[in-house]
């Protein structure tokens, strides 16, 4: 099955649960296992949270969630036009956070990497960030 959907949302924390629901609904036809579903929901939640609290730390913006299924391969892109990431490698280190005052765990990227097959990050300071999450959904072969 091939399919694609694109959603734009305001960078509000309340939309994190919407993004999770949207990706759940999108992959439902692939009949994912409960574990796969939880993995994808968690990774998407992390990426959207990052866009809201880091990308758009200075104010509201638009987050684009683009999801694509190609065969058994799920790709989710979370895109913002926020402040971008200065040092991607550093940002991806477990426990690294720029926002200790918000009691952030610094585990966002580590969780994405653990729960997805592949995580790609493209970012430019003052222009924005794209996080691409890729996962093979095992039951899609059936």
């Amino acid at each position: 099955m091939n399919n694609r959907i694109k959603i734009e949302m305001q960078s509000k924390p309340v939309n994190e649960s919407f993004a999770r629901s949207a990706v759940s609904a999108f992959i439902a036809p692939l009949d994912p296992t409960l574990e796969e579903l939880a993995d994808v929901r968690t990774a998407v939640s992390e990426a959207v949270t990052n866009s809201i609290i880091h990308g758009y730390a200075m104010g509201d913006g638009v987050i684009t969630l683009e999801m694509c299924i190609c065969g058994d391969l799920l790709t989710v892109e979370i895109k913002d036009r926020g402040r971008g990431i200065k040092d991607i490698e550093q940002a991806m280190q477990p426990y690294f956070t720029t926002g200790p005052e918000g009691e952030r765990s610094g585990m966002g990227f580590a969780v994405m990497k653990a729960f997805m097959d592949k995580v790609e990050v493209f970012s430019k300071p003052a222009e924005g960030t794209v996080v691409r999450l890729i996962k093979r959904i095992s039951s899609a072969d059936a």
Partner: peptide, 13 residues
Amino acid sequence: TFMDSSGIGVILG
């Protein structure tokens, strides 16, 4: 039913 790393932040704090 669901927890992401924001929950980890709560527990660590």
